[in-house]
Design a protein around this nucleic acid. Structure first.
Lengths: 350, 350
DNA sequence: GTGAAAGCGCTAACAT
DNA sequence: ATGTTAGCGCTTTCAC
């Protein structure tokens, strides 16, 4: 680590004062107003003038000041996107879906991360709203009272994503995690498994994981069954945690015949552990995860899972914000996607 | 998918015109200037006044307009961060490092994604600069001429990250991928392997992967050895691709005794495939990847790899932008981190 | 097809 | 400790 004598600075005529429309105006001999029109492709401008202006702007390396532009026009091409985390596989895919759709609309996503903290969500949201974005996409339906109030009075489209078990402030796009949990439980029961363990994240604030577990337990209860064992983890390598928790649980409760994991990564860890330890999957023990991550394709055996429709959720949310859905920029859309159960090779066939 | 009759709208007195300082000023009976001071914790304000103002702001649900604020103060608390992708493990960790450091500084990261496209990099950069951020963090040292020009004349700190094999516009933080490739090659040769295959991404624009391979081949050449085989992929599940490529390469070149993968995910796929097919690792074939991703911890055997210092890179870059490094906000920092070779269990011990 | 004036909502700089 | 004035760099609106 070193510090050369001074900042290198551009080679030719380094413009220390940021360039303005006026600079382009002067160099091209055209009024600021016309320069502005050219740069935004607005109104009628003669080809000759356009060329002059574009040339001058390019020569100077002029970059328009959107701050001033936004203040004057009262329009901002930013869409705030707030997610709990980037470190698991799921949110990056949502963001990609959003980006894909927005790319063609002139809107630009701006991402914020909350680390599953309600306080951070509040401050990230406040910060974003202070830039007066054209829309907000935010993960989940559970927010602090203050966050809800901000969303309600933001005066722009708000799309709550991932989850549909609840009431949105404005629009929502997602899946019912409660139902996803139920469906998985039903599939497991239908396959004849009865002594079922649950392994998941500690979820003080992961409401979707909680809802999946609740739905799962409800469906078990309908069949007169209760979870035989459960274990939770926080932090660390999910794959490794999956192994460790699986080992611990099967040692503690050797009579379990199914393990339901709250996500695919720990499920994959469990699967690897079972295979290495010569446990018959799905005969002796069945396994299932959640999310449908791509990684599962490369495992020795296909873990049963349920697709969480991440990319579609991102796309739909973006379409709502961009006013691409039939009806234009109205609010109150509710889009519930249908996760598909992928039985893979880790649930006994019936 | 349905559309309820109308947008729900806030319950009490829905403010359709966005609130301004003036509204808070009127409700609290204090001048706009003083309101502004309270809201920014600037200058001396009596406790009584502060209370009044804060109360009024809260009651109204006022959110300051940073667009106006930024225009007036010529200061923007945004830091533009431009990365090629979010879908592999590596960049999210960089972003996390950046976030961690910036959280305490009042600066806010704004992320943009280029999908390894130079054109998209250019437009994302242009877009970001038009918001006059306080700094730019951008992956890589290779940019289009136009992008370089923008970075040079941006007039704010620019930190190019991940790579130190080249000349930065201003500051850079990263590792030498060329050297990382060399070191891995040397370790492999030292362990006695001689017939070496390379498996990687198609890398028209992944300059760091290219540099690693180049460094790798250089070191082999120093020992009078050339790559015995090579194969590239694009898209799809990296774990699965790793399997497929490994199978294909060992079928084609059965005499290979080492496989060097350009990233850990395809390396992990290769490892799983070898283990399943009863190939003695590291006796018959050695394996190595790159990045040091957490996932490796959960695999049946520890893949040899090299830590790419992702989080530290993010942290250091943020510290430079925030002026936290000794010397304050000067430019031209060069921070070269030292990736550590982790031999794991897939390189024969000598 | 082009230009001049007014003002977006704040804050710097100067009063008081 | 609080208020007043003058812009920040654009775009809107209207005039030509």
């Amino acid at each position: 680590m070193s510090k050369p004598p001074a900042r290198p600075g551009p080679k030719s005529a380094p413009p220390r004062r940021p360039l303005t429309l006026r600079d382009v105006s002067e160099l091209s001999g055209v009024s600021e107003m016309t320069v502005s029109r050219v740069l935004r492709n607005r109104g009628d401008v003669s080809d000759a003038t356009r060329e002059k202006v574009l040339g001058a702007a390019r020569d100077l390396g002029y970059v328009p000041n959107k701050i001033a532009g936004a203040l004057a026009s009262q329009r901002v091409n930013l869409v705030g996107v707030i997610v709990p985390s980037l470190s698991n596989m799921v949110f990056p895919e949502v963001l990609q879906g959003i980006s894909e759709v927005l790319e063609d609309t002139g809107l630009q996503p701006v991402f914020g991360v909350t680390h599953y903290s309600s306080d951070r969500e509040e401050s990230v949201l406040y910060e974003m709203l202070s830039w007066r974005p054209s829309g907000i996409v935010i993960a989940g339906l559970e927010h602090s009272e203050s966050s809800r109030a901000m969303l309600e009075s933001a005066g722009v489209p708000v799309v709550e994503i991932m989850d549909t078990d609840g009431t949105p402030v404005d629009s929502m796009v997602g899946i019912s995690h409660r139902r996803a949990g139920r469906q998985m439980a039903q599939a497991i029961l239908a396959a004849g498994y009865r002594r079922i363990g649950f392994l998941g994240t500690k979820m003080p604030d992961d409401h979707r994981a909680r809802k999946r577990m609740e739905g799962f337990e409800e469906a078990l209860a309908d069949a007169g069954i209760t979870l035989a064992d459960r274990e939770f983890y926080a932090g660390g390598s999910a794959l490794l945690k999956g192994r460790e928790m699986t080992a611990a649980m099967l040692r503690r409760s050797p009579d379990l015949d199914f393990l339901y994991y709250s996500n695919d990564m720990i499920g994959a860890g469990g699967l690897l552990w079972c295979l290495e330890n010569g446990i018959d999957v799905p005969g002796r023990v069945g396994l299932a995860g959640f999310n449908g991550v791509e990684l599962l394709d490369g495992l020795p055996r296909r873990l049963a899972t349920m697709d969480s429709c991440r990319k579609d959720i991102g796309r739909k949310a973006a379409e709502i914000i961009a006013g691409l859905l039939p009806g234009g920029v109205v609010g109150g859309h509710v889009v519930e996607l249908e996760p598909v159960l992928q039985p893979g090779d880790t649930i006994r066939r019936v």
